[in-house]
């Protein structure tokens, strides 16, 4: 696939360029819907399409009124506030419990390892609507339905598989003699963990944390059922907006969220490439 050899026949040439055009179109399909939201969100009017003024690049056709609405409308601000209060707490819980368990799971002798792993990964496998239904039923029984902690616990459960997967993956390459060396030099298990093990698995922990964060921050199905009006998060508010009366403010919110995703993606990719480079897996 690399480069077209000079002796390529016209048919091969046609295939080569045709294939690239096809892939270009698919990439366009992947990325265009996300990109197109950005200019639309700067529409000065309440339309969901490019106005003639926007197409003529008339500066007056562009405006930030939708962003102003997002940052001043109390409903959106409350939703943003709830998201900012729920996601970090769920991330913190998922990362601390998940890292501890991942360290336990990576020991050489763990009884029932397969079964435990299956249970810990299950929140990722079970369709969200089923988790949401079960949690709604069960949390109403124990009085957690409609509370802040109910939503945080549900989101923690959903984020944990990602932490387990990323941290155990980093621990696979972990040199066990390092902890033994640390122990032989007199460090206790806790000191060994924080001084020796933690710095080495940190990239895995951070990308697990980012996955857990984005899981909670983007999650809407479970919070719809487990939360009440007081826990209305940003995705929930967007969901209502899309289902009932679609307002252009959603496009502004979407643009802000795309910016956040780009930030998270860059961080995760940076961490991944760094750890691959450290392990000598990739020349990049």
């Amino acid at each position: 696939m690399a480069a077209l050899p000079p002796y390529a026949s016209p048919v091969q040439r046609a295939w080569y360029y045709g294939f690239r055009i096809l892939c270009g179109l698919i990439f366009f399909f992947l990325i265009a819907p996300i990109i197109v939201v950005i200019p639309l969100s700067f529409n000065a009017e309440d339309f969901f399409t490019f106005t003639p003024g926007m197409l003529a690049l008339d500066p007056d056709a562009y405006g930030t009124s939708h962003y102003r609405d997002f940052f001043t409308n109390p409903a959106w601000q409350q939703a943003l506030g709830n998201s900012v209060r729920i996601a970090p707490m769920a991330t913190l819980l998922a990362v601390s419990l998940g890292t501890l368990a991942a360290v336990g799971l990576s020991q050489s002798h763990v009884p029932f390892k397969g079964a435990i792993m299956a249970i810990l990964i299950s929140p990722m496998i079970v369709p969200l609507i089923i988790s949401a239904a079960g949690m709604y039923f069960f949390y109403s029984r124990i009085g957690l339905q409609g509370t802040y902690w109910g939503v945080v616990m549900a989101h923690t459960a959903l984020g944990i598989p990602f932490v387990i997967i990323t941290v155990t993956a980093t621990l696979v390459g972990f040199d066990r003699s390092l902890t033994r060396a640390s122990a032989s030099l007199g460090a206790g298990p806790i000191r060994t963990f924080f001084k020796v093990q933690m710095p080495l698995i940190l990239p895995g922990v951070i990308s697990g944390a980012l996955f857990a964060f984005i899981t909670s921050f983007d999650e809407v199905v479970v919070v719809l059922f487990v939360g009440s009006a007081g826990q209305k998060t940003l995705p929930w508010q967007m969901f209502i907006g899309l289902r009932e009366q679609i307002s252009p403010t959603i496009l502004a919110v979407a643009t802000v969220l795309v910016a956040i995703s780009i930030l998270l993606l860059t961080t995760v990719e940076f961490l991944r490439r760094r750890s691959e480079r450290l392990r000598g897996m990739s020349p990049g």
């Binding site: 419990l97 336990g104 799971l105 249970i119 949690m135 949390y139 459960a157 944990i160």
Partner: peptide
């Protein structure tokens, strides 16, 4: 190893497995 896993396992059993069982 089990002691390290136990907190999370209990957490998942309460917050996730019990709801599915329910």
């Amino acid at each position: 190893a089990l002691m390290l896993i136990a907190p999370l396992l209990i957490f998942i059993l309460v917050t996730f497995v019990a709801p599915i069982a329910d």
